[in-house]
Design a protein around this nucleic acid. Sequence first.
DNA 1: TAAATAGTGTCTGTCAGACAGTATTAG
DNA 2: CTAATACTGTCTGACAGACACTATTTA
Lengths: 258, 258
Amino acid sequence: MSNEQALEQYDVKKYRTPDGYTSDIAIFTIISTHTEAFKPPSMDLKIMLIQRSMVDSEGRPNIEAGKWALPGGFVDPNETAFQSAIRELREETGVDHIHLEHFGVYDKPGRDPRGWIISNAHYAIVPEHQLAGRQANDDASAVELFSVKDVLELDLAFDHEGIIKDAISIIQQKLLSTTVAREFLPEHFTYSELQAVLLTVTNDSAIASDASFARKIKSLPFIQEISGQKTTRTSKKPTQLYRFVDAEVNNTIYHAKK
Amino acid sequence: MSNEQALEQYDVKKYRTPDGYTSDIAIFTIISTHTEAFKPPSMDLKIMLIQRSMVDSEGRPNIEAGKWALPGGFVDPNETAFQSAIRELREETGVDHIHLEHFGVYDKPGRDPRGWIISNAHYAIVPEHQLAGRQANDDASAVELFSVKDVLELDLAFDHEGIIKDAISIIQQKLLSTTVAREFLPEHFTYSELQAVLLTVTNDSAIASDASFARKIKSLPFIQEISGQKTTRTSKKPTQLYRFVDAEVNNTIYHAKK
DNA sequence: TAAATAGTGTCTGTCAGACAGTATTAG
DNA sequence: CTAATACTGTCTGACAGACACTATTTA
């Protein structure tokens, strides 16, 4: 029996269907603070939020007006939520080709006053300089970066407080358990630059200690020394540069790392 | 400005909306093979699939009839996809209170011939004995367990081949990087029983070697020896029993485990 | 020369994993 | 006693992390 026959008799209206399908994006960046010559960076993990306009593009009062929210929007019928997130990120901030990952579905009844609306949440990692040209568009009256330390004190739209909480804990965990830290760094980086990224989410002594971390970076299987390449951007003494290489990282709790 | 005003003017039909919202469940179980007295178990990781009926409950030809598929169904408007998965698992297999976790969204246009249908995929871990009473219901003409080794050779419905692939790699990874292995085991277990579970997804020497693993289990922070409790179900020599305890497991690639 | 960052030398303790040997019990 | 599983004894090498010390450069 063919699907064609079955489809002819299929009633697409048999089940009640959602009123909307959206995509939200937690855009993370790391801002270097205290940038001076010959100093290693000190970094702060930030998340980008928009402030919802008081009126929508057609001049009518907006839902959750004035509150801070994750950027996002409705998924088109010819794309996946993931593609929609890529598109919205491009429209919203003008950045492209960056690390984007799905991390959760938010579909609790009542989460959106407009109806049964399902949202897929993603996180994106955008290097600091790429957010330079960001600006508010139709839907948003402001775009701003907030340190993850105090973003939860804002008045947040919908159920975005929960989504943001989840996003922060995901990125903190991913930074230490995967190599996403590379997305925050230039292609070639020093041990102290990687260290600064990791210190935004941990204060483990093995990472915080210069001597330990400088030694450790040489034994990490997914990081490679670039022989002969040095920089003086972080210190007066020329510093070795490293790069990430693709190497599978096995991460089991039942035995030591290799 | 209040949300009430904004909602009055909101047009829920402004965006095209999905034609359906479903939940799929990859139900895993581990079957002990070669069960004999005084022998440690040998285990095989299985996934439960249903075979789609030729006709639906109203006697009409069914979509993807005859093919094997993940159990699942449409999400009700008053529940989340996760709750729906719990409900369907109960209806489908009669099991409740088991480990269930979301692992992916499948929303590629065209994935379902019936229209724009979004599916949330979950995996569930069900102890062997709980699946005893399983049976085919309306929608399914058969229910069967397949070894993950050969399940991908079946004729699978919709995009379930991709979902099942993802599910298998997720559970393999989770078994080694989290404590979900406990869900496959009785409350009290021997080192060789845990070992058998882990050997379904790895052949690492540190786990495969009896002597190494028997020693290692004592130093795992999330496993506790039950002092004085022994069993002879796996050997003639009475064997120490262990239990899982809740302990956070930090899993970073940048430094050794504790 | 002082100050600051980037390392290296070295020691200590821990621990993984290999291998061999011992312990316990049913039949 | 044998066979099978469950351990324990012991050794080796690696390695993490601490701490002190050295190296390199600018101002």
